[in-house]
């Protein structure tokens, strides 16, 4: 049997599951546009909700988003 916290995490992921979701390839193809939009937009809730939703569920894509964001933010300062 899985530990309690793992089962709760599984159920939390089920809660966040939507019938229609973007998969990694779709998010990767939009990632550059999404990161640029994040830097320019004050209200992130308005941006590409399916991309946002995928980033919540996919740690790999979330890490890549954050890494790309760090590059763009650093370049903005220089």
């Amino acid at each position: 049997m899985f530990p309690s916290e793992i089962l709760q995490k599984v159920v939390a992921n089920i809660k966040d599951t939507q019938e229609t979701e973007y998969f990694c390839n779709e998010v990767h193809s939009l990632m550059d546009q999404y990161v640029e939009a994040c830097i320019e937009c004050e209200d992130l809730s308005l941006l590409m909700p399916l991309v946002q939703h995928h980033l919540k569920l996919c740690l790999d894509c979330q890490e890549e988003f954050e890494a790309l964001l760090r590059i763009l933010q650093a370049r903005q300062k220089t």
Partner: peptide, 9 residues
Amino acid sequence: SQFTTWIYK
């Protein structure tokens, strides 16, 4: 997007 952003991705 900018070409550099695409490259960085």
